[in-house]
């Protein structure tokens, strides 16, 4: 694995999908800090575990609260949110403070690539590991696209 292992929180109300994500995360050498199916749990876990990344489904057990969850996670931790949703259209252009969105269904290879990419991007050290290309299927929010690809904007 390049870069450091990421501490990852899963926010997903489909338990099978959450379990699959957990397997993928661990098998890629990252650390799964917990899974939440609703907003209060997500908030509590974000506060107590202080993850690097939260993978957040847009529609959760308590309704389409994914966006609120993302805001709440951002307010109680430094975690960066990546939406992982089968309903890409629900985001339109309002990403809140999220990094972006990856649309379901995902494959192991795709999630692995996305996590390697984020690990590289979020690595604070300026040790210049090799640049990693943005994985296919990962859509950055306008804010992150500007931040990470200023030459395109």
């Amino acid at each position: 694995m390049n870069s450091e292992a990421l501490q990852i929180l899963i926010v997903e109300d489909q338990f099978l999908i959450a379990k699959q994500l957990e397997y993928i995360i661990v098998s890629c050498g990252h650390i799964h800090v917990g899974t939440a199916a609703n907003r209060p749990t997500a908030s509590a876990l974000a506060r107590s575990q202080q993850p690097d990344i939260a993978l957040v489904d847009l529609s959760l057990a308590d309704g389409p609260t994914g966006k609120d969850v993302a805001d709440e996670i951002a307010s109680v931790s430094n975690a960066k949110v990546l939406f992982l949703t089968a309903n890409r259209r629900r985001i339109y252009d309002d990403f809140g403070g999220a990094i972006g969105v990856f649309e379901k269904p995902f494959t192991r290879a795709a999630i692995s690539a996305v996590l390697s990419y984020l690990a590289w991007r979020l690595d604070g050290s300026e040790s210049e590991p090799d640049e990693i290309e943005k994985p296919e299927g990962l859509d950055l929010s306008p804010a992150y696209a500007r931040r990470w690809y200023p030459e395109v904007a």
Binding site: Q14, L16, I17, Q20, A86, P105
Partner: peptide
């Protein structure tokens, strides 16, 4: 999409 994901899982 969710169902395909569950099959995959």
């Amino acid at each position: 999409k969710n169902n395909l994901q569950m099959i995959s899982a």
